[in-house]
Design a protein around this nucleic acid. Structure first.
Lengths: 339, 339
DNA sequence: CATCATTCTGCTAGCGCTAACATCATATCA
DNA sequence: TGATATGATGTTAGCGCTAGCAGAATGATG
């Protein structure tokens, strides 16, 4: 009944108290068959009495499995990654896996390499990669993770590595088309950093959607996902003299900053400029005005990636594929037909 | 030069290739003295050639140390916890520790127990607890973590456990006094969930500050940290018929919801009601109006807790104490003297 | 009754590493 | 020159656990 690491009680201690061999205790601990009910009870009593907890290092050494998953992630102070990490951890725990974290400060291939490296040396059985950056090919990832199963979240659509992704192109088309359908003809964009897959996909899809509607895309400025960045980007758009009635912003935080900038220049939202975001963070509904945006199911992303990864660990010959999730439009009041 | 877990290369393999004993390889790997330059080079070459990575399980088993820290945390999708986790991980990595995560879904003593338990069995050398909930005494924590060093973040001020905290009372006094100084006499509050230490501390300090100024606190409603909760709480305040010119809200997200609710009832912020928040999330400066709030240094919290924890691991007799950090007022436009 | 299968338990050998000691050169000093 | 320090290496014995086999006890079958 003691704490989590009570005085290094070993299998042998338990075995001694229960009057059996340590192997029998091991069988009880691991739910093996062929232990008599009587023995099992005696052993369980002894375990409880001594507060025995199996030593994970020893078990790992013997079994060659760590029952740990590694999460390599960028910026869990961003809404998306934080959501994914939470759900990855919870799902992993439910599957009997612990989770160790390795964060990436700057989203460069080199930093990612270092983060993955920190998980080397039989620390984890598998890897969940939340590193949505361009510049590392599927082959690179495979090489980096050699011999250890991994699942990549939010990577390039169509990538030939085990992955679970959200169809960002689809999401971007959703909001862009929404504005077009409302009658907007002059659209601008604040994109995310274009070395992110998601940002790039949203950006390309924005352009493509406009072209398909026979419209020319207005200026696009690259932001940094933050409200401050959105503020600067919108001002820069205005400074360029861009004229637009619709603004597609690559995430909700930047949309917040953009709205503020627009208003600072005497433009009303949505009357003068309609603004749409991306992510549907919990605050978006309480923006002024409430933000029309795209909802991504991060929870599903986290859960499915763990399930896939566990399958991969159990059977390395599980076929490589990419699961694609689709985002949804959330209609609120930050966009309306142009006057 | 291979991946992170290349084909189970062992010390012996390296030793064989380098023509030395495995012990010598171990010495090189662990930077022990008494290895000749020549031998060291040969061994390092062999290590590189084979892509050797020490097996952590084996090392842990032999040394009785895991070089892993556990983070028990609630809701890393909240801004504060996410910030702390990030900085704990980064600081830990810089100190040579990995980090394993155990999240708590519901902030109850039972769930916390389970989360700590998941880290049992010599999985970690120490624990960082981000479980800012009442209902678990210092003694409880000590019992739960028996034999394993831990540092608690954001617990009760004055608790007799190793901890690093932000003086929430101070922060709350800062904003409350700020409103009083501006001339506000009728103040209401939207508190956080009162089973959180921080929420309770801010709440008590709000009352105390008012009393000391000779003012009676207006109604206070308990929120849930979310914008939606702040929205509901503000409406509930208004429904009660509360009259106030100043509203102290326990975090920025709730303040956002509250502002929206106020405006929904035709009240202007700050002209009719001044609103202040807590946390200074990156978006707060872009709220409408920009939010006057209290800035907490979560990074320092994370860093200092790791440093303390590592000291505790290295020397279990490090004196138990509580480091207290002080938040700062960030003045923006959501509060002004009453009309 | 011998034979075989079935259930239960113990023994032995390692998983890959490090700590502690033993060994052997070489350098230093009286 | 022999005694002593000191650098550089190898040898041995575990860390706590599990897998695989060996054996004992029991029941079913010919």
């Amino acid at each position: 009944m003691a704490g989590i690491d009570s005085k290094r009680v070993t299998l042998d201690d338990v075995a001694h108290l229960a009057g059996v061999s340590s192997q029998t205790v091991s069988r009880v601990v691991n739910d093996h068959p062929y232990v008599s009910d009587d023995t099992r009870r005696r052993v369980q009593d002894a375990i409880r009495k001594l507060g025995y907890r199996p030593n994970r290092a020893a078990r790992s050494l013997a079994t060659q499995r760590t029952c740990m998953l590694g999460i390599v992630t960028f910026g869990i102070d961003h809404y998306g990654p934080a959501q994914m990490v939470t759900h990855v951890e919870q799902t992993a725990r439910a599957r009997g896996y612990g989770v160790t974290l390795s964060t990436v400060r700057v989203l460069t291939p080199h930093e990612i390499r270092a983060a993955i490296d920190a998980l080397g040396g039989s620390v984890v059985d598998g890897l969940v990669l939340i590193t949505p950056v361009t510049g590392l090919s599927g082959a690179d990832m495979v090489a980096l993770c050699a011999n250890i199963p991994f699942v990549q979240i939010d990577t390039e659509l169509g990538a030939k590595v085990p992955s679970v992704v959200i169809d960002q192109r689809f999401g971007s088309r959703l909001v862009t088309q929404y504005l077009i359908d409302q009658g907007h003809r002059a659209l601008c964009e604040i994109s995310g950093p274009l070395n992110w897959y998601g940002a790039q996909a949203r950006h390309e899809s924005w352009i493509k959607t406009l072209h398909q509607a026979g419209l020319a895309p207005g200026p696009s400025v690259e932001g940094d996902w933050t409200a401050a960045g959105g503020f600067r980007a919108a001002n820069s758009l205005l400074d360029q003299g861009a004229l637009f009635t619709g603004l597609v912003v690559a995430n909700d935080q930047m949309a917040l900053g953009a709205i503020r900038a627009l208003r600072g220049r005497g433009l009303r939202v949505p009357e003068d400029v309609s603004v749409v975001g991306f992510d549907d963070i919990p605050e978006a509904a309480y923006f002024e005005p409430p933000l029309t945006t795209v909802c991504q199911n991060f929870a599903a992303l986290g859960e499915q990636s763990v399930e896939y990864l566990v399958a991969l660990i159990d059977n390395p010959h599980t076929p490589v594929h990419q699961r694609v999730l689709h985002p949804q439009l959330v209609e609120r009041q930050s966009a309306c037909p142009p006057r």
